[in-house]
Nucleic acid binder design. Structure first.
Lengths: 336, 336
DNA sequence: ACTCAATAATGAATCGTTTCATTACAGGCT
DNA sequence: AGCCTGTAATGAAACGATTCATTATTGAGT
């Protein structure tokens, strides 16, 4: 026998299975004498609850599914930590899936989570998943969108205002007196990138003397950034921008390296640089990076709380949208 | 009704539940006519298997538990990816838990995984967990240790030879003609750190003209590294080491920044620097970092394969120990 | 026509836990 | 003694998928 069941425990303690269950779930209903007898039996047999059986009976699991775009990005690591902490406080656990920007993997995780009858799903979406989410909701599994706002109002969401963030970044660069701004980021099919760019354009609109150049990258990684930085370094000095807004910090770190190679271009003297996310590494870069902070841990914990609230409610529950304000963090890369 | 069961499908298709199950699990046993009828019913009702019920019946889940020391360290992110890919190939899924170097959290995840009756556990251990692992194995849940070798031979393990790695790093520094070597890392209670240091000492033994200084840090993070780097930069030039071996790449990145601040110390001219792990970021650092590569993805996939093999076997199965050789990767930080 | 074998479909039993209506019992009160 | 109340403990039913021994059906072979 591989593991003991309540029945075994009951037999050893000389009580009924119902009583064992009471010991486990409603200790106050059990007399002290029986209590200790049952506990001794549990101890002796090394009894461990079978979660599958509990779930089957309960009809729902005690887990939450989380699907992130990129498990290697510190932003999502932090977000996941926030969600896990909040979940633990309510005795839930979080299953993390990494979609790696791939619609197929995203769909596979949603299927898996549905089979597991998770209590709800936290999702930073890749593809056009709304119909699938509607279906899931109809089957009793609510979703909260994270790191994404505004677009489809029929699902709750928690995120940061990317437009405001983009605007804030570029306005900061303009306030330093910079006039030839470059936006580096891509692919622009990624919603967050597109929104930050829109925000940047909005900031430009207020200042007619300045220009905005857009350099699209293949991905939001350090390597893409480095390539972009080197491309800029190769230009004649008077063709370079005097400030760069990178769509995220990984890019910004790469750009920094591309620019400074051989000491060619000084940051911030010649080119000011600002990133997005304020990952831990931004502050630790060679030239500490200015950035637009997103409260990643808070986003995760808030989303989870919203989700649990929604999961416990009746259909027709009204969804809510939490938008945290982005915050400008100024460091050496945009001083002077 | 929140979701349909096999019974509902059977009723709609006008067959028995057993037949529905056959459609799902033994399609070859079912006549084409019935097949399509059942599939139509499944489609119509939006039937989704209930994983809890399957598991209960099967007695075991189709999941593997993985507990890592630090989800934010790219090394573990890569390892997890390797494990997930391998698992997916055999139709298993991986549940990831982050122990954050904390024995309590580690224990909590082991409990959770036992309740879920996972098929096996991949663990990079924090505390003294062997007794607990013995217990789990007795209950039918095998464990494979990752990123840890040699110590307890009663469990399978997959890792890299940290002694050899440490030796390799320091021998490389000596071969450059450097003589005043510093080892930066800590806390030395972390097994991997201690082993790398031992390896470093072994390399020193072969060269009597050289000295090894040990600088212990509080953690293996960029910030700890930066502090160590700054401390070294503050010394009089002739008291500085001429080469540094950092216990991991996060530290090395920090050290690099601490040293180069204000352009004071040149790497590698004045001080050569080598890290450990060869995370993606090492190659992308301002001065690309030499490092000791660990095949993180491969470690993860190998460990998972070992685990599944062990899970499918009889008790008494002999454990195995896979030790990958570390590999020296030379980049700009140790040239010249 | 009849037997036999092969193929399809059936449905009751099972996994382990929780729930809840029911029973058992002790002690207080008249 | 008889009745009532409240507390403890009971054990059968339920959750949903899978399995497997059994039954039904078909068709080939004589």
């Amino acid at each position: 026998m591989v593991s003991a069941s309540v029945k075994d425990v009951a037999a050893l303690a000389g009580v009924s299975v119902g009583t064992v269950s009471n010991v486990l779930n409603r200790p106050e209903k059990v007399s002290p004498a029986v209590m200790t007898r049952v506990q001794a039996a549990i101890e002796k047999l090394g009894f461990v609850r079978n979660d599958a059986a509990r779930q089957l009976r309960a009809g729902m699991s005690h887990s939450i599914g989380l699907v992130v775009l990129d498990a290697a990005n510190p932003f999502f690591t932090d977000l996941a930590r926030g969600a896990e902490d909040s979940a633990a406080a309510e005795n839930f656990s979080v299953l993390v899936g990494n979609s790696s920007d791939d619609e197929g993997r995203e769909a596979a995780y949603l299927d898996l989570f549905e089979q597991q009858r998770v209590r709800g799903i936290l999702l930073s979406p890749v593809g056009e998943v709304i119909p699938r989410l509607v279906q899931l909701r109809r089957r009793g599994i609510p979703t909260v969108l994270v790191d994404r706002v505004s677009d489809n109002l029929s699902f709750s969401s928690v995120g940061v205002d990317n437009l405001a963030g983009g605007e804030m970044a570029v306005r900061h660069l303009l306030s330093l007196g910079r006039r030839r701004i470059a936006f580096v980021g891509g692919p622009t099919t990624i919603r967050q990138v597109a929104e930050r760019l829109t925000g940047a354009r909005r900031a430009m609109g207020q200042d007619s003397g300045a220009t905005l150049e857009v350099l699209e990258t293949e991905s939001l990684t350090v390597f893409s950034g480095r390539a972009a930085g080197e491309a800029i370094r190769m230009r004649a000095a008077d063709e370079r921008p005097d400030a760069i807004f990178a769509a995220n910090d990984l890019l910004a770190v790469g750009i920094l390296q591309g620019l400074m190679l051989m000491g060619d271009v000084q940051v911030p003297q010649e080119i000011a640089l600002i990133g997005y996310d304020d990952i831990e590494f931004a502050a630790a870069a060679v030239v500490p990076l200015s950035s637009i902070r997103q409260p990643s841990v808070l986003i995760g914990s808030t989303a989870l709380e919203l989700l649990l609230r929604e999961a416990g409610s009746e259909p027709g529950f009204e969804v809510s949208h939490v938008v945290f304000p982005p915050e400008l963090v100024v460091r050496a890369s945009t001083l002077g």
